[in-house]
Protein backbone atom coordinates (compact mmCIF):
# COMPACT_ATOMS: atom_id res chain seq x y z
CA UNK A 1 0.00 0.00 0.00
CA UNK A 2 1.29 3.42 -0.89
CA UNK A 3 1.61 5.86 1.97
CA UNK A 4 -1.01 8.02 0.33
CA UNK A 5 -3.47 5.12 0.34
CA UNK A 6 -2.67 4.39 3.97
CA UNK A 7 -3.33 8.02 4.70
CA UNK A 8 -6.76 7.84 3.08
CA UNK A 9 -7.52 4.64 5.00
CA UNK A 10 -6.71 6.50 8.18
CA UNK A 11 -8.89 9.45 7.15
CA UNK A 12 -11.86 7.19 6.39
CA UNK A 13 -11.42 5.41 9.72
CA UNK A 14 -11.05 8.66 11.63
CA UNK A 15 -14.24 9.89 10.05
CA UNK A 16 -16.22 6.81 11.04
CA UNK A 17 -14.80 7.03 14.56
CA UNK A 18 -15.79 10.66 14.72
CA UNK A 19 -19.38 9.84 13.79
CA UNK A 20 -19.26 7.17 16.44
CA UNK A 21 -18.18 9.59 19.14
CA UNK A 22 -20.55 12.28 17.98
CA UNK A 23 -23.52 10.07 18.71
CA UNK A 24 -21.98 8.39 21.71
CA UNK A 25 -25.15 7.38 23.50
CA UNK A 26 -26.83 6.34 20.28
CA UNK A 27 -23.74 4.37 19.26
CA UNK A 28 -23.54 2.68 22.61
CA UNK A 29 -27.22 1.85 22.52
CA UNK A 30 -26.97 0.36 19.05
CA UNK A 31 -24.01 -1.77 20.04
CA UNK A 32 -25.81 -2.92 23.16
CA UNK A 33 -28.89 -3.73 21.08
CA UNK A 34 -26.84 -5.86 18.72
CA UNK A 35 -25.16 -7.51 21.68
CA UNK A 36 -28.45 -8.34 23.39
CA UNK A 37 -30.16 -9.47 20.18
CA UNK A 38 -27.39 -11.95 19.54
CA UNK A 39 -27.15 -12.94 23.18
CA UNK A 40 -30.76 -14.17 23.23
CA UNK A 41 -29.65 -17.03 20.97
CA UNK A 42 -27.02 -17.92 23.52
CA UNK A 43 -29.51 -17.74 26.36
CA UNK A 44 -31.70 -20.25 24.56
CA UNK A 45 -28.71 -22.60 24.31
CA UNK A 46 -28.02 -22.00 27.97
CA UNK A 47 -31.49 -23.07 29.06
CA UNK A 48 -31.55 -25.98 26.65
CA UNK A 49 -28.29 -27.30 28.00
CA UNK A 50 -29.40 -26.82 31.59
CA UNK A 51 -31.96 -29.48 30.76
CA UNK A 52 -30.03 -31.74 28.42
CA UNK A 53 -26.46 -31.44 29.71
CA UNK A 54 -24.95 -31.80 26.26
CA UNK A 55 -25.69 -31.60 22.55
CA UNK A 56 -24.11 -34.42 20.62
CA UNK A 57 -21.41 -34.60 23.28
CA UNK A 58 -20.81 -30.86 23.51
CA UNK A 59 -21.44 -29.31 26.90
CA UNK A 60 -22.51 -25.75 27.58
CA UNK A 61 -19.04 -24.22 27.73
CA UNK A 62 -17.91 -26.03 24.63
CA UNK A 63 -20.96 -24.68 22.85
CA UNK A 64 -20.09 -21.19 24.04
CA UNK A 65 -16.57 -21.69 22.74
CA UNK A 66 -17.99 -22.72 19.37
CA UNK A 67 -20.18 -19.65 19.36
CA UNK A 68 -17.40 -17.30 20.39
CA UNK A 69 -15.49 -17.97 17.18
CA UNK A 70 -18.59 -17.24 15.16
CA UNK A 71 -19.11 -13.87 16.82
CA UNK A 72 -15.45 -12.86 16.91
CA UNK A 73 -14.98 -13.50 13.21
CA UNK A 74 -18.22 -11.74 12.31
CA UNK A 75 -17.28 -8.77 14.49
CA UNK A 76 -13.94 -8.35 12.72
CA UNK A 77 -15.36 -9.12 9.30
CA UNK A 78 -18.07 -6.49 9.57
CA UNK A 79 -15.47 -3.76 10.11
CA UNK A 80 -14.23 -4.41 6.60
CA UNK A 81 -17.16 -5.81 4.69
CA UNK A 82 -20.16 -3.68 5.63
CA UNK A 83 -20.01 -1.99 2.24
CA UNK A 84 -20.30 -5.40 0.62
CA UNK A 85 -22.95 -6.71 3.00
CA UNK A 86 -25.04 -3.66 2.10
CA UNK A 87 -23.90 -3.60 -1.50
CA UNK A 88 -27.46 -3.30 -2.83
CA UNK A 89 -27.84 -0.10 -0.87
CA UNK A 90 -24.42 1.14 -1.99
CA UNK A 91 -25.58 0.75 -5.59
CA UNK A 92 -29.07 2.15 -5.05
CA UNK A 93 -28.05 5.34 -3.26
CA UNK A 94 -25.55 6.17 -6.01
CA UNK A 95 -22.42 5.72 -3.88
CA UNK A 96 -21.18 3.03 -6.21
CA UNK A 97 -21.35 5.26 -9.29
CA UNK A 98 -19.43 7.79 -7.31
CA UNK A 99 -16.75 5.33 -6.26
CA UNK A 100 -16.39 3.92 -9.74
CA UNK A 101 -15.32 7.27 -11.24
CA UNK A 102 -12.85 8.14 -8.55
CA UNK A 103 -9.13 7.61 -8.91
CA UNK A 104 -9.06 5.04 -6.14
CA UNK A 105 -9.50 1.29 -5.94
CA UNK A 106 -13.13 0.32 -6.01
CA UNK A 107 -12.98 -2.36 -3.33
CA UNK A 108 -10.73 -0.13 -1.28
CA UNK A 109 -13.37 2.59 -1.22
CA UNK A 110 -16.22 0.19 -0.52
CA UNK A 111 -14.31 -1.44 2.31
CA UNK A 112 -12.83 1.56 4.04
CA UNK A 113 -15.52 4.17 3.51
CA UNK A 114 -18.07 1.90 5.20
CA UNK A 115 -17.60 0.12 8.46
CA UNK A 116 -20.33 -0.94 10.83
CA UNK A 117 -18.57 -0.37 14.13
CA UNK A 118 -21.82 -0.70 16.04
CA UNK A 119 -22.31 -4.24 14.82
CA UNK A 120 -18.59 -4.90 15.16
CA UNK A 121 -18.57 -3.96 18.81
CA UNK A 122 -21.84 -5.78 19.50
CA UNK A 123 -20.85 -9.03 17.82
CA UNK A 124 -17.16 -8.84 18.68
CA UNK A 125 -17.97 -7.94 22.29
CA UNK A 126 -20.24 -10.94 22.61
CA UNK A 127 -17.51 -13.09 21.06
CA UNK A 128 -14.98 -11.86 23.60
CA UNK A 129 -17.39 -12.39 26.51
CA UNK A 130 -18.17 -15.94 25.39
CA UNK A 131 -14.49 -16.65 24.87
CA UNK A 132 -13.62 -15.41 28.35
CA UNK A 133 -16.41 -17.44 29.92
CA UNK A 134 -15.56 -20.63 28.12
CA UNK A 135 -11.81 -20.64 27.35
CA UNK A 136 -10.83 -21.65 30.88
CA UNK A 137 -13.51 -24.27 31.28
CA UNK A 138 -13.17 -26.37 28.14
CA UNK A 139 -9.90 -27.95 29.15
CA UNK A 140 -7.62 -26.27 26.64
CA UNK A 141 -4.08 -25.87 27.90
CA UNK A 142 -3.21 -22.67 26.11
CA UNK A 143 0.28 -22.35 24.73
CA UNK A 144 1.95 -20.24 22.08
CA UNK A 145 1.18 -22.67 19.29
CA UNK A 146 -2.51 -22.80 20.20
CA UNK A 147 -2.64 -19.02 20.29
CA UNK A 148 -1.06 -18.81 16.84
CA UNK A 149 -3.45 -21.46 15.54
CA UNK A 150 -6.36 -19.56 17.02
CA UNK A 151 -5.27 -16.34 15.35
CA UNK A 152 -4.98 -17.98 11.96
CA UNK A 153 -8.34 -19.64 12.45
CA UNK A 154 -9.88 -16.23 13.07
CA UNK A 155 -8.22 -14.72 10.00
CA UNK A 156 -9.43 -17.67 7.93
CA UNK A 157 -12.94 -17.39 9.34
CA UNK A 158 -13.04 -13.67 8.57
CA UNK A 159 -11.90 -14.32 5.00
CA UNK A 160 -14.40 -17.13 4.42
CA UNK A 161 -17.30 -14.88 5.44
CA UNK A 162 -15.82 -11.90 3.62
CA UNK A 163 -15.57 -14.00 0.48
CA UNK A 164 -19.23 -14.99 0.80
CA UNK A 165 -20.21 -11.32 1.09
CA UNK A 166 -18.00 -10.38 -1.83
CA UNK A 167 -19.47 -13.19 -3.91
CA UNK A 168 -23.06 -12.20 -3.07
CA UNK A 169 -22.26 -8.53 -3.76
CA UNK A 170 -20.88 -9.50 -7.15
CA UNK A 171 -24.05 -11.44 -7.93
CA UNK A 172 -25.83 -8.13 -7.43
CA UNK A 173 -24.28 -6.96 -10.69
CA UNK A 174 -26.13 -9.70 -12.57
CA UNK A 175 -29.29 -9.95 -10.49
CA UNK A 176 -31.23 -6.98 -9.30
CA UNK A 177 -31.77 -8.07 -5.76
CA UNK A 178 -29.75 -10.56 -3.75
CA UNK A 179 -30.85 -9.84 -0.20
CA UNK A 180 -32.94 -13.01 -0.04
CA UNK A 181 -29.97 -15.04 -1.28
CA UNK A 182 -27.92 -13.43 1.46
CA UNK A 183 -30.59 -14.36 3.99
CA UNK A 184 -30.63 -17.94 2.72
CA UNK A 185 -26.96 -18.65 2.15
CA UNK A 186 -25.39 -16.50 4.76
CA UNK A 187 -27.57 -15.71 7.74
CA UNK A 188 -29.45 -19.01 7.80
CA UNK A 189 -26.24 -20.99 7.41
CA UNK A 190 -24.79 -18.96 10.20
CA UNK A 191 -27.64 -20.07 12.46
CA UNK A 192 -26.74 -23.70 11.74
CA UNK A 193 -23.11 -22.90 12.49
CA UNK A 194 -24.07 -22.17 16.08
CA UNK A 195 -24.29 -25.94 16.59
CA UNK A 196 -21.73 -28.70 16.03
CA UNK A 197 -22.04 -29.59 12.36
CA UNK A 198 -22.02 -33.30 13.24
CA UNK A 199 -25.48 -32.80 14.73
CA UNK A 200 -27.12 -32.34 11.34
CA UNK A 201 -28.36 -34.58 8.54
CA UNK A 202 -25.93 -35.42 5.78
CA UNK A 203 -27.23 -32.89 3.22
CA UNK A 204 -26.88 -30.01 5.65
CA UNK A 205 -23.42 -31.19 6.63
CA UNK A 206 -22.40 -31.21 2.98
CA UNK A 207 -23.79 -27.72 2.59
CA UNK A 208 -21.92 -26.49 5.66
CA UNK A 209 -18.61 -28.08 4.72
CA UNK A 210 -18.44 -27.85 0.93
CA UNK A 211 -20.87 -25.19 -0.22
CA UNK A 212 -21.05 -22.43 2.35
CA UNK A 213 -18.15 -23.65 4.48
CA UNK A 214 -19.20 -22.28 7.82
CA UNK A 215 -17.94 -25.48 9.42
CA UNK A 216 -14.44 -24.16 8.81
CA UNK A 217 -15.22 -20.87 10.50
CA UNK A 218 -15.89 -22.33 13.93
CA UNK A 219 -16.49 -26.09 14.06
CA UNK A 220 -13.17 -27.45 12.81
CA UNK A 221 -11.01 -24.84 14.55
CA UNK A 222 -12.87 -25.58 17.80
CA UNK A 223 -12.32 -29.28 17.21
CA UNK A 224 -8.59 -28.72 16.83
CA UNK A 225 -8.54 -27.27 20.32
CA UNK A 226 -11.22 -29.46 21.93
CA UNK A 227 -10.81 -32.83 20.16
CA UNK A 228 -14.35 -34.08 20.69
CA UNK A 229 -15.30 -37.60 19.64
CA UNK A 230 -17.55 -36.51 16.77
CA UNK A 231 -14.42 -35.37 14.88
CA UNK A 232 -13.70 -38.98 13.96
CA UNK A 233 -16.16 -38.92 11.09
CA UNK A 234 -14.19 -36.19 9.29
CA UNK A 235 -10.71 -36.28 7.75
CA UNK A 236 -8.13 -34.88 10.13
CA UNK A 237 -6.83 -32.46 7.51
CA UNK A 238 -10.04 -30.45 7.96
CA UNK A 239 -8.60 -29.18 11.23
CA UNK A 240 -5.92 -27.25 9.40
CA UNK A 241 -7.73 -26.02 6.33
CA UNK A 242 -9.47 -22.88 7.63
CA UNK A 243 -6.83 -20.30 6.56
CA UNK A 244 -6.27 -22.04 3.23
CA UNK A 245 -9.99 -22.09 2.44
CA UNK A 246 -10.33 -18.49 3.58
CA UNK A 247 -7.55 -17.27 1.30
CA UNK A 248 -8.65 -19.50 -1.58
CA UNK A 249 -12.28 -18.40 -1.39
CA UNK A 250 -11.33 -14.77 -1.08
CA UNK A 251 -9.07 -14.89 -4.12
CA UNK A 252 -11.76 -16.67 -6.14
CA UNK A 253 -14.40 -14.16 -5.06
CA UNK A 254 -12.03 -11.31 -5.87
CA UNK A 255 -11.45 -12.51 -9.40
CA UNK A 256 -15.17 -13.08 -9.89
CA UNK A 257 -15.66 -9.49 -8.76
CA UNK A 258 -12.95 -8.10 -11.05
CA UNK A 259 -14.40 -10.00 -13.96
CA UNK A 260 -18.01 -9.00 -13.27
CA UNK A 261 -17.45 -5.35 -12.59
CA UNK A 262 -17.10 -4.81 -16.32
CA UNK A 263 -20.76 -5.69 -16.69
CA UNK A 264 -21.94 -3.22 -14.12
CA UNK A 265 -24.74 -1.02 -15.42
CA UNK A 266 -25.41 2.30 -13.85
CA UNK A 267 -29.08 2.73 -13.07
CA UNK A 268 -31.16 5.27 -14.91
CA UNK A 269 -32.58 8.22 -13.11
Amino acid sequence: MRSDTLNLTWIYTKKIMKAWFQYRSDALLRSVTVFLREATGIIVIYFTLLKFDSLNGWNMYEMFFLYSLLFLTYGIMIIFFTGLRDFGRTVRDGSFDRYILRPRGLLFQIIFANADWFAAVGHGGLGVVLFLISAQKVGIEWNVWYAVYYMFAIIGGVLIQGAIFLFLATLNIYLLETSSLKELFYFNMRKFAGYPVSLFQKPIQILMIYVVPFAFVNYFPSQYLLRKDDMQQYPEIFLYLTPVIGIGMYIAAYFFWRYSIRFYKSSGN
Partner: peptide
Protein backbone atom coordinates in the same frame (compact mmCIF):
# COMPACT_ATOMS: atom_id res chain seq x y z
CA UNK B 1 -10.50 3.47 -18.30
CA UNK B 2 -12.97 4.85 -15.81
CA UNK B 3 -11.24 5.57 -12.56
CA UNK B 4 -8.07 6.66 -14.38
CA UNK B 5 -9.28 10.14 -15.20
CA UNK B 6 -8.61 11.45 -11.73
CA UNK B 7 -8.91 15.20 -11.73
CA UNK B 8 -9.25 15.36 -15.52
CA UNK B 9 -12.98 14.74 -15.30
CA UNK B 10 -15.47 16.24 -12.87
CA UNK B 11 -19.03 15.01 -12.92
CA UNK B 12 -22.23 15.88 -11.18
CA UNK B 13 -25.29 13.71 -11.75
CA UNK B 14 -28.66 14.37 -10.12
CA UNK B 15 -29.22 11.91 -7.32
CA UNK B 16 -25.56 10.87 -7.25
CA UNK B 17 -24.19 13.30 -4.74
CA UNK B 18 -20.46 13.75 -4.35
Amino acid sequence: EKGTYGRDMGIFLTGKSN
